[in-house]
Design a protein around this nucleic acid. Structure first.
Length: 479
RNA sequence: CGGGGCGUGGCUCAGUCCGGUUAGAGUGCACGGUUUGGGACCGUGAGGUCGGCGGUUCAAAUCCGCCCGCCCCGACCA
């Protein structure tokens, strides 16, 4: 840790974010512009995210596989919208082994095309369906402006790709996976999200319909935290993914794709972080409990350390992720600040007084300072800790939800909308036209984030043009 | 790619306008000692082709030219 204080979030959110990422040792800048190195602590967080999602994918019948990093350029060109959407941000390999390649290879920006090609080989009959495959991997998109985790040239993610016999099944799958993302965000990451449908201009290049979970960050800007796409028959037609149905009729498949990336780490940082640094939800935190031994001399150390070791072992055996900070070269006060910067949900201090009193001092990360401190008995510690962690997890969610709801407004007119999106989200009736959407973007930089699945019902008039509108949409400035 | 800013020990920066001893500070790092329940202190030490190349000059971190890189604001996006 270098400088002592972080910039206040309220003063300079963007600089606060950059420093938290680096000082918590989640990631660092790579020597290539726009690329990041995910450091062990950040990767460990990602592994926990992976495990939480993968468990949910497996529970709904999905299996993992791995497809190549390189995709023939011609594949991208087979789906018109897809190539138009992605060509500006492709990295292309033209030389291999010192020879110019006959056909350039694209470093995958996403894998619909190469997986579509394989699916056309594998799927012959309705008996082969559905195909439910997920891939954990990395992709490359040549972005102009980059931020650690939020937008880098290369990022890690999972992409699910499924093929179905009917349109209905594909739509069900698309919404099922959107719901899994929602459950993951809410239950595992304590990040409140709004599941909804993307507007035409915001949808995935090549999709019929795109769905998203949108989250509000600590500066009120919106972050698209995961997406699920109903691809219709667009890729099935482009890659000839067909099957024989029960009547021996040749039919095109209906496909979907869905993805969630390391960007979600950015969502966690910007949802829960405070002026002391990172705050991690207990269910995903690489370290859930850090134990700081307190002693002034060798005699006290000899008393304290056995208790520290015993409690550490006891908690580890109860399946908590525990770290003992036994560094001798820094003071306890330094360690407190250090682990707060890294967002560890719960700290236990164990000193001579605790050895005397059969106690430990606990400190909750979500309540910095004295309010978060409480002396616990050493008896039945795992049960007490479990309760505390559950409570921290819940209070992180509640706090984020309260913050979000306090920054969503329903403007009475367009002028009011323009003000709202400067520091919040506007939830408004919208006629659905590209023109009205574009006007808001031009006037305010805010875009439509999603048309939430949960609609108030009834009808209204478009906040921009005043024409009849059937759905309400969120407008917000986004990452 | 357009507009703005910046490149000096690992990091943050002073010094550059007005050229002139051996290029500084804070922090970090190493070693020794005293400390340790909210970012300890003292001492010693290591660490620099001043982004690169060229020019002007007796003399360049400092002046001039070209190049490279990074950051911020726009256009593009998970």
């Amino acid at each position: 840790m270098s400088e002592e204080k972080l910039p206040a979030r309220a003063e300079n959110f963007s600089e606060w974010y950059n420093q938290v990422v680096q000082r918590a040792e989640l990631a660092d800048y790579a020597p290539v512009r726009g690329c990041m190195v995910v450091r062990p602590y950040g990767w460990s967080l990602w592994e926990n995210i992976q495990a939480a999602l993968d468990r949910r994918f497996k529970a709904t019948g999905h299996v993992n596989a791995a497809f190549p990093l390189f995709i023939p350029m011609s594949f991208l060109e087979k789906e018109k919208e897809h190539v138009e959407g992605f060509s500006p941000e492709l990295a292309v390999v033209t030389i291999g082994g010192g020879e110019k390649l006959e056909e350039p290879l694209v470093v995958r920006p996403t894998s619909e095309t190469i997986i579509g090609y394989m699916y056309s080989k594998w799927i012959k009959s309705y008996r082969d369906l559905p195909v439910l495959i997920n891939q954990w991997g990395n992709v490359v998109r040549w972005e102009m402006r980059t931020r650690l985790f939020l937008r880098t040239l290369e990022f890690y993610w999972q992409e699910g790709h499924t093929a179905h016999a009917t349109e209905k099944e594909a739509e069900e799958e698309t919404l099922r996976m959107l719901n899994i993302y929602t459950r993951f965000a809410v239950d595992d990451a304590a990040v409140p999200v709004i599941p909804g449908r993307k507007s035409n201009t915001e949808k995935f290049a090549g999709a019929v319909r795109s769905y998203t979970i949108e989250a509000m960050m600590g500066d009120t800007r919106a972050l698209q935290a995961g997406t699920s796409h109903n691809l219709g028959q667009n890729f099935a037609q482009a890659f000839d993914i067909r099957y024989l149905d029960v009547n021996n009729q040749l039919q095109y498949c209906w496909t979907t794709s869905w993805g969630l990336s390391t960007r979600f780490i950015g969502a966690i940082i910007m949802t829960h972080g405070d002026d002391q640094g990172l705050v991690l939800p207990p269910r995903l935190a690489p370290i859930q409990i850090v134990i700081v031994p307190i002693y002034r001399n060798d005699a006290e150390k000899a008393q304290v350390m056995p208790v520290v070791e015993r409690i550490s072992r006891e908690l580890t055996e109860s399946n908590f992720r525990v770290k003992v900070d036994d560094r001798t070269e820094v003071t306890p006060g330094f360690k407190f600040n250090d682990w707060e910067m890294r967002g560890v949900p719960l700290r236990l201090e164990i000193g001579p007084k605790d050895v005397q009193n059969n106690s430990v001092m606990s400190a909750r990360r979500d309540q910095p300072g004295k309010e978060g401190k409480k002396s616990l008995s050493q008896d039945q510690l795992p049960g007490q800790i479990a309760e505390l962690l559950t409570d921290i997890q819940a209070s992180l969610f509640d706090r984020a939800l309260a913050f979000r709801d306090a920054h969503i407004f329903d403007p009475h007119d367009y002028e009011e909308l323009k003000e709202i999106v400067q520091n919040g989200w506007a939830f408004s009736w919208w006629c659905g036209s590209d023109e009205c959407e574009a006007k808001v973007k031009e006037d305010t930089k805010a875009t439509t984030r999603c048309i939430p699945l949960d609609q108030p019902g009834g009808k209204g008039t478009c906040i921009v043009c005043g024409k009849p509108a059937e759905e309400k949409v969120y407008f917000a400035r986004a990452y």
